[in-house]
Nucleic acid binder design. Structure first.
Lengths: 335, 335
DNA sequence: TTGTACGCGTTATCAC
DNA sequence: GTGATAACGCGTACAA
């Protein structure tokens, strides 16, 4: 088992350079030579040392992926699983490796580590804050990266779902069905997704000439427990519909409604966001917005690679469309 | 912003070697020198180039993690999320990086890539087969790795849950409550977990002097849909209890039982395996075996690092205990 | 305690 | 087409 270029070169009676050329598919090499060397590479099962390649070429073909684990068990959220899956799959398809960092609280040092020159060519950062110190740190350190989720920093490139328009559409759907006291359970408002979905909600209200009522807005945390608590409080203000900014919160809300003996959708219509697997198994099945997290991850990788090849560009944005999936929790017939 | 050892050396008026020593905490360096150099390193925000370090030292501090994506959306299974979380967290705590490879079908080449010298110091492989070609490939290539899940290959080191004894305990629990026609829905039997849980089931039967009846065994695939199908078939043979080898299958079975108007646990008692979040929200709450996937991941990393430091050792095994969580689907009072 | 010099395995720039 | 040879940035005997 030969281990270095040098050995392969010796075995095939050529120089290191030629072997290197064969390995890298350089055209300027005689067909006969190429074949002979290739055969020996094959026979010996030789693989170039990645680290040495990286050092010499200045490129590692490794993409860093940083996912802040704000709450415990964030990975339990199907969104992140899918996002990660999309990232991994796209990276794989483009012959890139993925270096994963599930950053716990106080992980600033990990960012520095990941951004360390040589390790990775770029970073996909799943940052949820409009203005994130870590994102700032990344641009400051000159690391090429793309944010998954909107960012206020004009320098940062990002991919995101069209949260505003999707939320507007979801809320409008409720209004169109005649509901007028439409409440909403939002995610944590420091997160751009939460802000954007709230914005969409307000836009729909305005569009239908319905007054925005703060009492019908409850800020929660995307979890089922949070949705349940939110619903309990909202119930005091007699809503006839609820737009939950995540399916998990919608599930919690549904549990609370059931416990309070409120009929869904008859008394209160419900719409979620995400279209997690559970959504269609809920009773009644949940009307929700399908966002394709895998696609988002793939898009992030594609954009990142583009940025790596064209470092001059910055502040690029890619917005992916979502789709309203009408089931029965909203009180509309299927269709 | 200084970028190389050389520059820092020049800036602080010493040689590269000395700076290197300071960086690596070598004791043989004068306190005064150390301080001076450290200050400059700090001021310049210098970080050693990881790639160069790896090449020179022969160690990358990167751990490969390979998870075969047999079925689509494997990551959706909470087990893998938790496993991955445990791995990432432990690796982080030990200053290791994680290189993730979500290997799709036909991913043999990826294994080779990951095992490529220089990239990673070792690999955590989540292989489910008793005898896995990929695992064989890894040992063949001399890659240091640990398998998550039992392996028949005496060379491979692995960490695993105590599936046999847990399954025995779960089944025995049913038998102890007086059930005699205890059926089981197994996972795919090429997987060691499935085999082991089936073995535990048989052991419990034997222990209670109950004949093993093939008609009461249905091989499925760990998914909810699979559990549902399995339950439908088993129903033909009038079981009074079911041990499902995964909570997701238990959920499917429960749905089927409900559809068939069979009372749980009165007519048919049910026990699952995994203790996924859904388990305690099922109606009735599911009695199940709690396996700590995070701990499994952490143990895998710990073992791997141990192996990296002591490459001579091989075939080490670590078995983690599980715990029966009694809720009400089995027909026992809480306790 | 500090510095010199060589090696890690490639890539890339030259000549030939 | 092919082959020396100089980087790439760092670790580490060995010498001083």
């Amino acid at each position: 088992m030969a281990h270095t270029l040098e050995e392969i070169a010796r075995l095939s009676g050529v120089s290191r350079s030629t072997v290197s050329r064969v390995i890298n598919g350089d055209v300027r090499v005689a067909a006969a030579t190429r074949e002979r060397v290739a055969a020996i590479v094959e026979r010996e099962g030789y693989r170039p040392n990645r680290t040495a390649q990286s050092l010499a070429s200045g490129r590692s073909n490794v993409l860093g992926v940083v996912i802040p684990m704000a709450a415990d068990g964030v990975l339990a959220d199907p969104y992140f699983s899918r996002l990660l899956h999309g990232i991994a799959r796209e990276a794989d398809g483009r012959d890139q490796f993925v270096m994963l960092s599930l950053a716990e609280a106080g992980f600033i040092h990990r960012i520095d580590e990941v951004a360390r020159r040589g390790m990775v060519d770029g970073v996909v950062f799943s940052g949820s804050h409009a203005s994130d110190p870590f994102a700032d740190r990344l641009v400051e350190s000159g690391t090429i990266f793309v944010n998954v989720g909107r960012s206020d920093n004009p320098q940062v490139s990002y991919v995101d779902n069209d949260n505003v328009s999707s939320a507007r559409q979801a809320t409008a759907h409720l209004l169109r069905l005649g509901r007028r006291r439409v409440a909403t359970i939002t995610g944590p408002l420091f997160a751009t997704v939460s802000q954007d979905r709230l914005t969409g909600y307000r836009e729909a209200l305005e569009q239908f000439g319905v007054r925005y009522d703060e009492e019908l807005v409850f800020e929660s945390d995307f979890t089922e427990a949070g949705g349940r608590v939110g619903m309990r409080r909202l119930l005091e203000h007699r809503p006839d519909a609820v737009f939950a900014a995540s399916d998990r919160m919608a599930a919690g809300a549904l549990n609370e409604l059931r416990a309070a003996l409120v009929a869904v959708p008859d008394d209160v219509a419900l719409v979620g966001f995400d279209d997690i697997p559970l959504a269609q198994q809920m009773e009644p099945p949940l009307t929700t917005v399908r966002q394709n997290a895998e696609q988002l991850g793939a898009a992030a990788v594609a954009l990142l690679l583009d940025l790596i090849d064209n470092p001059s560009e910055s502040g690029r944005r890619i917005i992916l469309p979502s789709e309203l999936v009408v089931r029965s929790s909203c009180g509309a017939g299927l269709g």
